[in-house]
């Protein structure tokens, strides 16, 4: 479908004026390359990015901006529809307050500013047409661990925006459950290496709170809580890791792996967060408490899309 009459500008670009602590380009990553040592990467809260894309009529796997703890300021050129999801930053267009979770028109030359979000950690800005940086190995995602994809954005960067494909969806507002205040409940499947831990360690993981520490990034979140004691102390040969894995180094304090996690790891994984709750984990801030509840791999799969309805 051709672009609509209001979007004819030849120059569709975002001028970056400020980025906050970290803003990267993300799509749904590079699956299928793990055998080459390349992880999937992509949006830490993939469901939030999918939703932002749907709101502006992009394919769900289009590239958007992942903004960590607000602070992004961009000037849009060419007249652009945008939508913000994930952590609901207060936002303005040329000083006028606008709402997240809804498509918003950014007139030619207008400035979009994001404040710090009241809850959640990562916001997703989709721009109609998608962020159009050159893909690397089939994806525009920045993998901060492997050093693949575009560099994190900096003030002065110009971010190209693609040409819209499908029609605007005609959605005014998405009703979704936003990021959580307070304790965050995450469903885990126990294993694959639960037999490397004492029964007390497993009980602690499933009953005690674990605090998100400041040593957290797109690779993983280092947690602090009751130490998870091993029942054996031999060395585990390195093995493949999944997003959501709770890997336990000798300190006994688990790390919850997120989008840029290493492809393989040498510490045992006591349990792993199910796919449907990874987004909730990625939105937890340093200082927030996590509680892990046990599920089975099949129940986890059945609920993999909860909380992402567009009404």
């Amino acid at each position: 479908m051709v672009s609509v009459a209001s979007e004819p500008s030849p120059r569709r670009v975002l001028d970056v004026l400020a980025t906050g602590p970290l803003t990267t380009v993300q799509d749904l990553g590079r699956p299928g390359l793990a055998a080459l040592g390349v992880g999937q990467s992509g949006a830490a809260d993939a469901e939030a990015l999918r939703l932002a894309n749907r709101l502006v009529g992009n394919p769900e796997d289009g590239a958007g901006l992942e903004i960590t703890f607000g602070g992004l300021e961009v000037r849009g050129h060419g007249g652009l529809y945008v939508a913000l999801t994930g952590a609901p930053c207060p936002m303005t267009v040329d000083g006028r307050q606008v709402a997240p979770y809804a498509p918003e028109w950014l007139p030619d030359g207008a400035t979009l500013r994001l404040g710090a979000p009241p809850c959640g950690l990562r916001s997703y800005l989709a721009v109609r047409g998608g962020i159009d940086v050159p893909p690397v190995l089939g994806s525009r995602a920045t993998d901060t661990l492997a050093g693949l994809g575009p560099s994190p954005l900096g003030a002065g960067d110009q971010v190209p925006v693609g040409v819209p494909g499908a029609a605007m969806p005609g959605v005014d507002l998405a009703t979704v459950r936003g990021p959580e205040h307070g304790e965050v409940r995450l469903r885990v499947v126990v294993g694959p290496r639960d037999d490397w831990f004492t029964a007390a360690a497993l009980r602690a993981l499933l009953s005690e709170p674990y605090e998100v520490t400041a040593e957290s990034n797109r690779v993983g979140m280092r947690l602090a809580g009751q130490a998870l004691e091993r029942s054996r102390d031999d060395e585990l040969p390195s093995e493949g890791m999944v997003c959501g894995a709770l890997q336990v180094p000798p300190s006994g304090q688990p790390t919850l792996f997120l989008a840029d996690h290493p492809v393989t790891g040498g510490y045992p994984v006591i349990a792993a967060v199910v796919a449907g709750d990874i987004g909730l984990a990625a939105q937890a801030r340093p200082g927030q408490l996590l509680r892990f509840t046990r599920t089975t791999s099949l129940e986890g799969g059945r609920n993999a899309h909860r909380g992402t309805r567009v009404d």
Partner: peptide, 19 residues
């Protein structure tokens, strides 16, 4: 995705397409 390693083979799966 498949991740062979020293003693293991990890099969990553799409929970929407299989279990």
């Amino acid at each position: 995705d498949m991740v062979p390693a020293a003693r293991t083979l990890l099969l990553r799966l799409d929970p929407h397409r299989t279990d």
